[in-house]
Amino acid sequence: MTEYFQSLGMSYEWAWGVATIVGILLIALPLMLAVAMIIYADRKIWAAIALRRGPNVVGPFGLLQSFADGLKVFLQETIIPSSANRGLFLIAPIITFTVALMAWAVIPFNSGAILADINVGLLYILAISSLGVYGVILSGWSSNSKYPFFSAMRASAQMISYEVSIGFILIGVVLFADSFNMNDIVKAQQGHGLGFVNAFGFNLLLFPLAVMFLISALAETARAPFDLTEAESELVAGYQTEYSSMSFALFWLGEYANVLLMCALNAILFWGGWLPPVDWAPLYAVPGIIWLFAKILFFFFVFSWVKATVPRYRYDQLMRLGWKIFLPISLFWVFLISGYLMLTRYS
């Protein structure tokens, strides 16, 4: 895109700056729209599984429900508890929201369509997702209220625990792709499975990692069955109990943007990203972005499906799953994959 703006007669620096800003807007604005629609989809899927109708009043089929909710929240009064730590209380939702958007910079939407094509794309994602803890922990602490604080403690312990195993799972993918660059990871999956399936997931060595990544992604985004952070039967509404109006909406948007990000990562790391599912020439006629969106939506459906059907974990069970099952298995898998690659690829 920089070349296009250069051809309009700008110097390289200006063209780069304008191109980057346009790129950011091209990602962030559709993402916000997608978040609004995905919240609607989440409620509809959940309702369908529970044999209810779900939102069906605002707009055709209730399609505009999220916008109505957004408007309602926008018009509410912002209440700051008098004993809250004012500065941090207001910064916390901004951190959550910004961090949820930042990670999208390295998501490849098509072979060239990536905002920041950096060497360390996957590490960048890890770094940014580890920042997400701060929004939660700060909101819980600065609210100066009992339940949000409990929730913040739980959330941060949970996120840190599952980040460890996510890190090891990602190393398995990186070893196979031989790169940290997101685009290279997608390209490495071309014809990976049996010579014609474009997915790491069809590799017997990587399939267990794909399953573990999906479950860890649920835990990392604090979705059901790991939504202990907002266990309404114990903690009112979790770390966002004291928030109202736009500051609450930012948490809400950030949470769903994170869920979409995790779905996108599932698609990119294990199921071929913007590549069509099968390495067959006519399928490449469909733009890559459509394949990627189809995969993201499929994983979002899985997320909603899980949310609607699986009961909540107990806290000790959550910790056991993270530390005693996922961590040893993923650690062993790093060893297994590197051994396999040493035998086959590098000998």
Partner: peptide, 15 residues
Amino acid sequence: AEFIAMLLVIVYVGA
């Protein structure tokens, strides 16, 4: 040193 930069964020900020 982009690798060190990312490690700094992951290890120090994140943990």
